[in-house]
Design a protein around this nucleic acid. Sequence first.
DNA 1: ATAGACCCTTCAGCCACTAGAGGTTCAAGA
DNA 2: TCTTGAACCTCTAGTGGCTGAAGGGTCTAT
Lengths: 142, 142
Amino acid sequence: MLTIGALAKRTGTKVQTIRYYETIGLMPPPQRTAGGQRRYDEAELDRLAFVRHGRQLGFSLEAIRELLDLADNPAQSCAEADSIAQRQLKQVEDRIARLQVLQVELKRMICDCSHHSVAQCRVLEVLRDHSECLTDHDNIGA
Amino acid sequence: MLTIGALAKRTGTKVQTIRYYETIGLMPPPQRTAGGQRRYDEAELDRLAFVRHGRQLGFSLEAIRELLDLADNPAQSCAEADSIAQRQLKQVEDRIARLQVLQVELKRMICDCSHHSVAQCRVLEVLRDHSECLTDHDNIGA
DNA sequence: ATAGACCCTTCAGCCACTAGAGGTTCAAGA
DNA sequence: TCTTGAACCTCTAGTGGCTGAAGGGTCTAT
């Protein structure tokens, strides 16, 4: 039986995060000692590893929840798991594309700016200039 | 004089976001009509455009705040603006690299999984399997 | 028996917004 | 001048995915 700290160490998770997963119902309530401390078994370690690996791949907790449901009912077709992964891949590819646009623009900003005064600083100029704005006004934060 | 709605439209920002920027001190408190509505001029439009462009380039609001301070004091060297942009470029490049790793792994998951039953589903299998875990346990969320 | 490493709950905070409730003001048309 | 209704106002709460801290309790080795 693992303490929460041991489980945390073995999965590369913080203790608080494991408790957080429990409060949102992603991890089941584990056994407790007489004194009220959590004790975990191998099945729970597997489940947490699944969750963490999904997070590393960029899946949202909601997507992971769906995948866990699928894994719990293995009789169905895997088409749904496939489509969740497809959605995720598309998101990742979109993000890469957008970041590459930014990369180009940042490089252009930087290489033109070599320690002149702020007044002619290319970095600030580019940020100020509307005409050099990216046209995509949406989807900022992702 | 622009209403907040007009300003929002011209900068591709939501009205609430502009008010939010004001509460956190990123935008100055604007003039008000007798009835208490906000009215903006061109200088404020420029400032907001600067902020939004910075956001599109992935700068944090804190970084943008620093850049605005620099822009307000144009006598100094631009070395600092440069280094903010350098930091930002490095972050962007890190993100791209990590996303490309995920992209490869997701593609591998998907192309091996063509509508078999969940029991042999590659998507779920990959998520379950420790040995195929990414080694990088940190830096999940970014 | 005691030390101290670990665990518990609860609450607040992070970032960058976004949404909604419930009310007020403005500008254009009749 | 009056009325309509779109746009504005403040305030509060919620999002996702955690993280940190306060103020305690428990477990285990010595």
